[in-house]
Amino acid sequence: MRLKSGNLHPLGLCGLLAAFTVAVLAASPAAAQEYPAKDIRMIVPFSAGSGADAAARQIATRLSEKLGKPIIIDNMPAGNTIVGADTVAKATPDGYTLLFHATQFIVSPALFKTLPYDTIKDFEPVARVTSQSLLLAIPTTLKIDNLKDFVAYAKKNPGLNYASTGLGSSLHLAGAYFDHVAGLKANHIPYKAAAQALADLVRGDVAYMFYPYPPFKPHIDAGKLKILGSSGAEKPAFFPEAQPMTAFGYKDFVLPAWHAVYAPAGTPKAIIDKLDKTLKEIADDPETRAKMSAIGIDLYYASSAELKKLLPQEIEKYARIIEIADVPKQ
C-alpha cells in the first residue's frame, strides 16, 4: 500500500476524516446481534507511544478489521499498570472490555505487596500474541565482540553498570538474571526514559543493557553498539545474528518480553473462543508479521488454554528472578 510521494490518496483522507468523526462522536447504541455488536474498549496500561502501545495498536487494528467493529485503545498507565488491569478485572465480563498487557502483568504479583486484583482468578486469558526478544548490547568502545569475552571482562572488572527502564521492569530482570547465571557482580542503574539510558550506553557510561532491537539499530549501523546475545528462545526474525542465551550454555535463560490479551473473568466462552480464533488468524498473517517485525516484535501465538497453563508458571519464574535480583517489594 505504499504510494508515491505527491499522490493524493482519497482513501487515506476518507479514513482520516472517518477517524476524526469516530473520535468525536460517542459510540452508537448497540443492536442486539452477535458479538461484537458495538465498539470494543481495549485497555492498554501503558502510555501512548510506548512499545506495548505500539504492539497493541497493531493488533487492535487487525482485530478490528476482522471483527468489523472499532476497537478503542484506552491508555491507562497510572499506578504502574495496576489501575488499568484493575479496571478490566472489575469490568462487566461481556467481551467489550479487554486488556492488552505485557510482561509486567506477570511480574506485578511478586513485585507488589498488595494488588487490588487476583492475576489468575480475576482474568480470562484470551491469547498470547507476541514474543519480544531483548537484545544484550554493549558499546563498541569496550572492544569486545563476543559474549564469552564480555563475561570474562565483567568478571575481571566487577561493578560494571547496566541500565534498565525501572526497578522490576522486564529489562531490569533480564539484566539481573544474566548477572546471576553468568556469575557477575554489577550495578543496576534504572532510568525513567529509555532515551537517556540509550545515550548513556552509547557514550559508555553504562556497560550493557537488555533492550528491544529497533532503538539499537541506528547505533549498531553507526558502529557504536555491539549485540552479544538475545533473551528469546530462538533467534529473532528481525535480527537473526542475535544468538539466544541458551546457545552460550545459559540453559534456562529464556526471558523474552511478551504481550497477551485478557478479558475479565466470567466472559462467555463463546466470546473468548471467537477472539482467540481471530487472534490466531492475525498471528498467522504474514503482513502483520512483517509490520510487527519492523517494530522489533515477533508474533507468537498461544491459545487461551495454553496461556492459562503458562500464566502460573511465568508468575512463579519471575517471582524467583525478583528474589534473585533482590528487588524490594513495593
Partner: peptide, 17 residues
C-alpha cells in the same frame, strides 16, 4: 500525544513523508 497515537493506524496507508 494522544492525538498522534490515535491517528497512528491511519498513517499505515499513507506515504511515510
Amino acid at each position: 500525544t494522544a492525538t498522534v497515537a490515535m491517528l497512528l493506524p491511519l498513517t499505515f496507508t499513507l506515504d511515510p513523508l
